[in-house]
Write a protein that binds this DNA or RNA. Sequence first.
DNA 1: CAATTCTATTGGTCGGATGTTTGTTTTCGC
DNA 2: GCGAAAACAAACATCCGACCAATAGAATTG
Lengths: 223, 223
Amino acid sequence: MAVTDEAITKIKDMIISGELAAGDRLPPEKELSEKLGLSRSSLREAVKALEIIRVLDVRRGDGTYVTSLEPKLLAEALTFIVDLHQDKSILEIFEVRRILEPAAAAMAAGRITAEQIAALRASVAGISADTGVEALVEHDLLFHSLIATAANNSYLTSVLDGLNSNTVRARVWRGITQDAAVDRTLTEHIGIVDALARGDAELAKALLTVHISGVEHWLRQAL
Amino acid sequence: MAVTDEAITKIKDMIISGELAAGDRLPPEKELSEKLGLSRSSLREAVKALEIIRVLDVRRGDGTYVTSLEPKLLAEALTFIVDLHQDKSILEIFEVRRILEPAAAAMAAGRITAEQIAALRASVAGISADTGVEALVEHDLLFHSLIATAANNSYLTSVLDGLNSNTVRARVWRGITQDAAVDRTLTEHIGIVDALARGDAELAKALLTVHISGVEHWLRQAL
DNA sequence: CAATTCTATTGGTCGGATGTTTGTTTTCGC
DNA sequence: GCGAAAACAAACATCCGACCAATAGAATTG
């Protein structure tokens, strides 16, 4: 194994073992490189790798810290990877979403707060058929993310958020706009909020299955 | 943004735009560093970071290549991250698995091949109540991975595989062994295979929900 | 055809110049 | 003397370029 990979493993182990906890500060590069027995340059490669997957947070002029390691950060790492898998297997990603989102909605139905319902309604209210694609995508991401959040499982939220990518979303909504199907999609969103507001888990689940399947179907044709 | 981060973004964009396709070879470090306008050292940090998340494949003495970018590689990246989140929210991870695995089993029921059924049976046959924990964990991972694979959606498989970590699994199976519950767990596994063999999607789904919930319940007590 | 040499490429190290942040000390105004 | 602003110092990450080692693959040679 390369020196750098060893360093990555060692740092990772230090975190798993508890020697380094969330928020802790790592020794300075020079010191840590000596401790792990490699050069600063190589250590920096290791640190950089851990930084992009949001494990370490490097603050220039200050020091390097272990991030909160909240599942939320997993989403960012996931998105980074999923972004690269564009066009490859969008449909497979949708299939996974079709499993997770309805389940998330069902979970959310029993737990969602009045504030969250209000946020969902506000999200839908802000747009209409003549809204730009960019804003539509933003709304869509927010809408689905709010539901995932209401399910109250941060890993579920992370995986779902991570599986979403602006790139694909943008393409889908461009298509929806061209097909003049924005109204129908929004109506579906409103229906979902209503079901959640009534705490009807079964209906919310079914509506989301229908909603995502619809988009999936459209996408299948488009490809 | 730091130069290294810029480099990461640029390389990423080169892949997304299609300028670099899967399997393609990148220019030599020296050349690429000049093209992107940074030193070789800094570029190497960027490359290392992309290597960790399995986007690039660096072959010493040969060159750097874009990986196949198969979803499978996503699992490795995911596992790396999930490993770090140990003890934090194992239960949340289980909740996600309880959603995905039954769905995967239901999908698998209609598609699973005779060979895959045979592999599942072989996997179960190799163990018994007096098998060591290590072998049990290995079997368990294989068993669940086979089902996910049979669902024939590589993203689903990846996410599921990625969500599994040997660390947690080992702890669970140590507990199962102590509780002398190995037999019961294996019986459940056999029941699942039977349902899949008969193509009974509903039953397979239910059995997996029961199976995972059981482990989840045990884990909840143990914590 | 096989062994050897050559060449291109990544792996790894070092040290130095630079920029940033944080906290401390000093200075200044009142 | 007190408080606020400014200058300063220390700690630290950033970035670079040069250097040699290890390796893989191609070209050469026997």
